[in-house]
Every structure is written in C-alpha cells, then in structure tokens.
C-alpha cells in the first residue's frame, strides 16, 4: 500500500483564541509518502523513505493501538461528514489520505500535473495481459495492464491522457507493491 498523507496543523489540544500551530503550519501541510507492507509480524513502513516497523491493531472501532520501537501509542479517529481527524494523545490533527494505487484519487492527485507519471503495482500479483504497446496514445481511464491476485483481475488504468512512454511489465511476471508497471507522459 502506498499512501500520500497530509497532516494538517495541530488543533484541539489547547483552547483559547489562538489555535496551537507551533508544530503544524507550512511543514505540516507537506504531503508525506507512506508505504506499508505486511510483514510476518506487523508492518514494514517507509515514511518519506524512512523505514519504520509498526505493529498495529484496532481494539475497538475508531481506536488504533500502535507499537513503534516498543513505544505504545493510542490514536483515536474522529470522522466528520467532510474531514478526518486523528488524535495523538490530546493533540488533534486534520489528516488527508490518498491511496496512490486507487485510480480515482490518483486522478485527483495528478489531474493537472504535467510530466511523466509512474504507474506502480498497487499490491502483489501477477501480470495477466499488457494492453498497450510503448509509444501508443492513451486516454485517461484506459487500461494499460491487467494484474491478477486472489483470482480477481484488475485493470491498471492510465490516470491521464497522454502517451505510454514505457512498459516495464510483461505478461506472466510477478509484481510486488510499488513495482513500476508503466510510465505515461
């Protein structure tokens, strides 16, 4: 799993006219890239490239128990109609999360971006078919490769209109999450 996560400035931990934003502000608004991979015990994570091993459990809805390097954290989730907040101790963070493997959010994420876009394998599986050749034109939402896992086939689609610059997948090959499948420009 690969997510892009924006952690907003801290709020809710203090009252008063000024909301505590010492830790948030500009730095807090920068998106983090979080890769998660199931390990034998817990999860291997890469947060902005930094490896972190995490053991995670949801003991009851909206409560997450995290163990990181032997330290315990209990995170509470508060969902409103429009927003997601996570409480770490008594500090509350507005959080935005995009699943970089999900087409819709990928489109939203990169909709007006220029330049090449890497199409990555969203999860472990096997390449069933390659639908387009290199240098062929592609419409937004058009399938490029088909990946199969757990007996379900999934078309990996182009997030935008353009040209397939590179296909690095070949039929029959096994892929891991985050493996490069294609580049669309």
């Amino acid at each position: 799993m690969v997510y892009e996560i924006i952690v907003g400035s801290e709020s809710g931990s203090e009252s008063g006219s000024e909301s505590g934003s010492e830790l948030g502000g500009e730095a807090g608004a920068k998106p983090h890239r979080l890769e998660l991979e199931k390990a034998a015990a817990g999860w291997e994570c890469r947060l902005d490239g930094q490896p972190i091993h995490v053991d995670a459990l949801i003991p009851r809805p909206d409560v997450l128990s995290l163990l990181v390097d032997g330290h315990c954290y209990e995170i509470k989730r508060e969902q409103t109609a429009t927003d997601l907040y996570l409480w770490v101790g008594s500090a509350r963070f507005a959080v935005e999360l995009r699943d970089l493997r999900s087409l819709r959010s990928r489109q939203r994420a990169v909709g007006d971006e220029k330049g090449p876009i890497k199409i990555l394998a969203p999860m472990p599986g096997r390449i069933v078919r390659v639908l387009l050749a290199e240098n062929s034109e592609v419409e937004a939402g058009q399938g490029i490769v088909v990946v199969e896992a757990m007996k379900m086939q999934n078309e990996i689609k182009s997030p935008k209109k353009g040209v397939v610059k590179k296909i690095s997948a070949s039929a029959g090959a096994a892929v891991n999450p985050g493996d490069l499948l294609a580049i669309v420009e």
Binding site: Y3, V7, L36, C45, I58, H71, R77
Partner: peptide, 21 residues
Amino acid sequence: PGIKAPETIAALAAGMFAVLD
C-alpha cells in the same frame, strides 16, 4: 528520543487505519 513526533504517529496511523479498515 524514543518517542516519535505526534505528526509522524498521525501519518502512520492514517495509513494503518486505512489498511486495517
């Protein structure tokens, strides 16, 4: 030094909530 910044935990938690859900 052993404690992660709350922002870091929030980011990890956001991902873990999504995956575990």
